[in-house]
């Protein structure tokens, strides 16, 4: 049975009609021992089928361990949203866990942003990111039932798009309880930057920029 309703499919076909550059979804899955792998793959398949601008590559996490390592995938299900076509580019945009509930909109917005080729961040943020010298790893912990979470994830993904030094992961806290424990996640969204700086809530761009400066200082 399809996960997408027919009227939602039609809506997305309409939304995707403005896609310009090709987008590639890379999904890492596994047949066994992954509760939401099958559903994550189905979501990616159904979304990719809605536009000829979206392609999908599915890898088995174990059978393609080397490729998983190249993409920095250490847990599944994982979805990479990258520029496709003849000039592919991995911006460091990752979804760990199923993009369901409110996070489905994150997947769609990521696709739109990557295709547009513009993060939409302010000139001030872009200038700071362009001058960045140190790597930044952002992990945004979320739950699918959190209406505030997509704003935090999308902002992190916008930053990833601006710099090869930034990688931004959505991490679904319920599916990865060991990470939720490790990073003391008792509320979402919670963004952990470079393992040491964290911020609660869907922070506005300017506030997050302040935390990023703290994380690389």
């Amino acid at each position: 049975m399809a996960l997408l309703r027919e009227d939602d499919r039609q809506h997305l076909i309409n939304e995707f009609s403005v896609l310009t550059n090709p987008v590639k979804l890379v999904v890492f899955t596994q047949k066994l021992e992954c509760q939401y792998c099958a559903e994550t793959r189905m979501i990616a398949e159904e979304v990719a089928a809605l536009s000829d601008k979206i392609s999908l590559q599915v890898y088995d996490f174990e059978a393609h361990a080397e490729i998983a390592e190249q993409y920095g995938i250490d847990k599944i299900p994982a979805t990479v949203i990258m520029r496709g076509g003849n000039d592919p580019k991995d911006y460091g945009i990752r979804l760990f866990g199923i993009p369901s509930g409110y996070e489905f909109s994150t997947l769609i917005e990521d696709i739109m942003m990557v295709s547009r080729g513009d993060s939409g961040l302010s000139a001030e943020t872009k200038a700071w990111v362009a001058a960045l010298k140190k790597p930044v790893h952002m992990q945004v912990f979320i739950t699918p039932t959190c209406p505030y979470c997509p704003r935090a994830v999308i902002l992190a993904h916008q930053l990833a798009m601006e710099s090869d030094l930034i990688r931004s992961d959505m991490v679904e806290a319920i599916e990865f309880p060991h990470l939720a424990n490790k990073y003391h996640v008792h509320g979402v969204p919670r963004t952990v930057i470079n393992e040491r700086v964290h911020i609660e809530g869907a922070a506005p761009e300017r506030m997050l920029l302040g935390k990023l400066k703290e994380a690389v200082a």
Partner: peptide, 17 residues
């Protein structure tokens, strides 16, 4: 473990509105 499989598409139910 419970996890919402709803795709958060209630806005889309408005059919492009």
């Amino acid at each position: 473990m419970e996890l919402s499989l709803g795709l958060g598409l209630s806005k889309l139910g408005l059919e492009a509105e």
